[in-house]
Write a protein that binds this DNA or RNA. Structure first.
Lengths: 192, 192
DNA sequence: ACCTGAACACCGTTCAAGT
DNA sequence: ACCTGAACACCGTTCAAGT
């Protein structure tokens, strides 16, 4: 839209703007459409300009992923103290709902063994603390958390219909109930 | 290696050979390297020749996936009758081990809501029957199976290190034990 | 430090044409 | 029916050069 820039002329971008554009592309075109070139196009810059703000496409995916996880509401300290496993349940359910709004992102998430971003780390810290308050040792808590995360991300991936695809045999409500059933089985096993 | 073919000259391919070449490429280059062009290259044909045997790259991925699932050993009818949940456990564990040998394939698997191929269907039929023998109604068995499958594929995806990447913090033995712990939690919940 | 221009080595897919 | 040739519209990434 603006006048084209010559070499040496700056666009005034920063990493946050690149990330925001990436999330826009993700929303409009899904994860398969989330290319560096598409992001650059949306920002009105040359394709390789992105490399000034992010090291590679994988780094961009990681950053977007972590950005999405910021939407997950964390329980207050009081909630954790009162009902630790209930807090864990709330975290997993909130994560499921958030991830479900971003179909296509979870496969690469699992591939990467979970995000190492700050938001993901914070979710992990709170979950581990709650599991500790529920009586688990730290190694046991880590084991339990891994199972819970795999279940949550996996079910979100399974539940997510690619954008613009036919409704599928199961409704979103049924899928969510199915996820909750599995989650409660796991929490029962963890509590035992 | 052979003499180049002109237009109209046949290569004598069939779908099985295309699939076999695809599995070779998958083994050597991982899922990111599994392109139609790479398969064509390995077969010594033009890139678009593949379209005579498979409709698209997604169809090829589906077919390869289902091919891999053929390696999962199914329990005998006797095993299912004697210990239905033990048979389910064996199916899931065998699936985990097989999928783990093909890192990178699971993300697209989850994305597709599981393979609809014949091998996957057969696995589903046997699992559902075993769950029925364990006392579950059909809707309950379907729900339980979904949770079990998500857990298995998800943990395999989580456990799989991309080919040629550093060892990672957890060993394969630890990851397998972690998967089994979650699997048994789920089976306990299902049995209740 | 941040950007453009140009290039390299790739993709999936389609269409026409040959036997 | 099965294949080649050529093309189209894409990719991620690198390198040199400009301010």
């Amino acid at each position: 839209m603006a006048r084209p820039r010559g070499p040496g002329e700056r666009a005034g971008l920063d990493t946050d703007q690149v990330l925001a554009a990436a999330r826009d592309v993700l929303r409009d075109s899904g994860v398969s459409g989330l290319s560096l070139r598409a992001v650059a196009r949306r920002l009105g810059v040359a394709p390789n300009a992105i490399y000034s703000h992010v090291g590679s496409r994988d780094e961009l995916l990681d950053a977007v992923l972590d950005d999405v996880l910021a939407e997950v509401r964390l329980p207050f300290a009081g909630e954790v103290a009162r009902d630790p496993l209930g807090a864990v349940r709330a975290i997993m359910l909130a994560s499921y709902d958030v991830l479900l709004r971003h179909p296509g992102l979870m496969p690469s998430y699992l591939d990467r063994q979970g995000s190492r971003g700050v938001q993901a780390q914070q979710l992990g810290v709170v979950t581990l603390e709650a599991l500790g308050r529920a009586g688990l040792t730290e190694p046991a808590a880590r084991e339990a958390m891994r199972v819970l995360i795999v279940n949550t991300i996996g079910f979100a991936a399974f539940s997510a219909r690619p954008t613009g695809s036919p409704p599928g045999v199961m409704s979103a409500v049924e899928l969510r109930a199915n996820f909750l059933r599995g989650l409660d089985w796991l929490l029962d096993g963890i509590a035992r």
